Each structure stands twice: as C-alpha cells, then as structure tokens.
Simulated assay, not measured.
Amino acid sequence: MRRRNSLSSRAPRATRTFVSLTGPAGNIGDALIRRETLAWSSGTSDELVAYVGDAPDVWLTQLGLPNDAIVLRSKKSVPRWLWFILTAPRHPVLVFEAGEIPLDRGNGLRELVFLAETIIVRLKRGVVVRPPRGIRAPSQPALSIHRLAARLSQVTLWRDATTLATARTGRLAPDIGFSAGVRPGRAWNERTELLVSLRGTRPLPDAEWVRAVRESAERAGLSIRTVVQVREDEDRARELAELLGGEFEAWGQTDPLEQEERLRQRYDAARLVISDRMHVLVLAALSGAVPIELVPQPTGKITKAFAAIGLDGVSFDATTTAPVRLREVLDATPERAAEVAERVRAAEASLTGIQQQIRAGIRRTRA
C-alpha cells in the first residue's frame, strides 16, 4: 500500500470512494480512459482509495492521482483492498475501471471477487458504478457471474450494442475516452498530414494497402507520418514509415504525458488518421481528424464503439475491400470531418450528463 500523504494524524473520514485504475504505462489510450474514470470518482467522497495493480510510479503521474489518495499496489494488496471495502463507513462508492473486460475461461474467480465487492457496497447502501466497457471472449461461468454483478450495480454502462446484448442489463453509452476533451485543431485547409499508427502484433498490410495510402496522401497533398501511442508498436511504426516513404516519429524516452500532448498536437494538424488502435482514433476524432481503421481483418471493436456514437463507415477490411474502394475510403473530406466533429461533441456532452447524474445519485443516497 502506498499513501501519497500520510493520513495517520487525521480523524476517520465520513465517506470513501474506491476506484480500480490498473493498466500498462506504455499505453496512452489505457491511461486516458483510466484518467477519465478517476475524474468520475474524484470528489465523490472524503477519501479516495485507488487500486493500481503492478503499475509503476509513472502511471500514477499519468493518471493525475491526487496526493491524498490511498494507493494500493500489486496483487498482494488485494486483501487489503477488500478489507477497506468491508470496513468502509456507510454509503461507499465503488467505481470499476473502464475498458475491455476479458470473460474467457479462467476469469470466473476474479468475477466472483468483483461480485463480492458489489454486494458488500450495496449492503452498505453505497453506489456501484461501471463506466462504459466492452466484453471480450465471454464464456461460462464468468459471464453469468458478471451479469449478476452488473444487475446489482446502480450504474452499468456499455460502449457498444453487442456488449449490451451480451450483458442483458445496463445501457449504451459512448466510450469514456470521448470525454477527454474536444480540441479545435487546425482549419481543414491548414491540415497537412496523414498519420498512421498500427499494432505491432498484427501482420503488415500488403503492397496494395501501401500503394493506396501513398496515393491518397499524394492526391491530397499531405505528408505521411507514423506515430506511436503504444510503446510496443514503435518498431511497426518505423517499418511503416519506410514502406510509405513517410516520417517516423518515435516515442523514445519522452515522458508519457509529453508524448500524449505531442500526439494530440499531431492529430490537431492531421486530415486523416489510420489506425487499428481504438483510442488512437478516438483522440484523432476529438482533434477534428477523420478516423479510419483500414487493416486486414479488423476485429469489429472499433466499428461497434463508433457506431454507438452514431458514426458509421470508420472501419474497413483491407483484404476484402477492392482497390478502387480503398482509395475512396481514404479520401477524407471536410464534410466527413464536420460529421465526425458533430458526433464526438454529442458523445462528450452525453458523458458529461452521465457523470452529473452519477454525482447527483450519490448525493441522494447520502442525503
């Protein structure tokens, strides 16, 4: 356990909020959605308890954890986390982390723990919040346990319609990443770049894909730049820059917060951003760029999350899309950029309203 400031000299606090904020420091998208989850949690109680798993110190800085938060580190602190919940004063708040939930085989025990946490908080007449999430690889018994815990929570949100149908409870909401702030970016005629950021763990796109991207940039008078939002993708970005004849921008030793701001400035100046990383495209859209997933056999995650905010035509399968169509989808237009901007503004407003509703519900519970 780590306390950012000692609390030993203080009197016991009246209320307590628990928030889970685990994640890899080398993934700016994960840091982004955990930071927004923290924003939903901050100020809801007198005391904040955050579980960050095995994350390094830089992760705490990325998230902006307040100095007076109680921070629990590593899996060895899970019993202490549960003890804090069990001994919390009445009306605690429990906020699960946003993101993707794996419910494949082997996750049943973990889901039982989360169910127990939910039941304890409800018995204490507290509030359980599940921010917008997606379910991956649902299997039994983990799925059934998760469904029960979700039904017992006052706020259960899903970031895509498929997950909502699988969960059979809760409601649809935009991915929490859309609350990271709409940026004005540059005017359309001042945007000079086409950005590419692809996962390093998937096969390279073929020669037809490379040709289509290069020709699209040439037609629009854009320069190509490959960028890195996840550290493990750095080698892939270097490879793509060579293939595309573009400029490679490494992450290197740059501080994660500085890298995040540098990326957002790049998105501010881009007309088109091509990626199979969902939160690359979320940040690109928030900056006014046109987001496109154009890769071999996309998973569907990006399609579903953007469909939830009313934005279709974001994802395409490079292996089945005809060459002529490849060039069409890569021709970004100011009209498409305006549509993207309208949808992300609405998503941001929706998430702001949800957060206000949650805070009002907590106040009513404690009244």
Rank of each mutant, 00 (worst) to 15 (best):
A308E: 04
I309Y: 08
G310P: 08
G310F: 07
L311N: 00
D312I: 05
D312V: 10
D312P: 09
V314E: 05
V314T: 09
V314D: 00
V314C: 05
S315C: 11
S315V: 07
S315P: 07
F316W: 11
F316E: 08
F316G: 08
D317S: 08
D317I: 03
D317W: 06
D317P: 10
A318W: 04
A318N: 05
A318Y: 09
T319N: 14
T319F: 15
A322T: 14
A322F: 07
A322N: 11
A322V: 10
A322M: 13
P323M: 00
P323G: 07
R325E: 14
R325Y: 11
L326C: 00
R327H: 11
R327Y: 04
R327N: 09
R327P: 05
E328W: 03
E328M: 07
V329G: 05
L330Q: 01
D331L: 15
D331N: 14
D331K: 13
A332M: 06
A332R: 01
A332Q: 03
T333F: 12
P334S: 00
P334I: 02
P334H: 05
P334M: 04
P334R: 08
P334V: 00
E335T: 07
E335C: 09
E335Q: 13
R336E: 02
R336C: 03
A337H: 03
A337K: 00
A338S: 12
E339T: 12
E339H: 06
E339I: 04
V340Q: 02
V340F: 01
A341D: 12
A341P: 05
A341K: 15
E342A: 15
R343P: 04
R343H: 08
R343M: 01
V344Q: 00
V344Y: 08
V344A: 01
R345T: 11
R345G: 03
R345K: 11
R345Y: 09
A346V: 10
A346G: 07
A346E: 12
A347C: 07
E348A: 13
E348C: 09
E348L: 07
E348T: 08
A349P: 10
A349W: 12
A349V: 13
T352M: 12
T352N: 12
G353K: 12
I354K: 02
I354R: 06
I354D: 06
I354T: 08
Q355W: 10
Q355C: 14
Q355G: 14
Q356V: 14
Q356K: 14
Q357P: 02
Q357K: 13
Q357D: 13
Q357V: 10
Q357N: 14
Q357M: 13
Q357W: 14
I358H: 00
I358M: 02
I358E: 01
I358T: 02
R359F: 09
R359S: 01
R359G: 01
A360N: 14
A360V: 09
A360F: 11
A360S: 13
G361L: 15
G361R: 14
G361T: 09
G361C: 04
I362T: 05
I362D: 12
I362N: 07
I362M: 06
I362G: 03
I362Q: 09
I362V: 10
R363W: 10
R364I: 10
T365A: 15
T365R: 15
T365M: 15
T365K: 15
R366M: 02
R366Y: 02
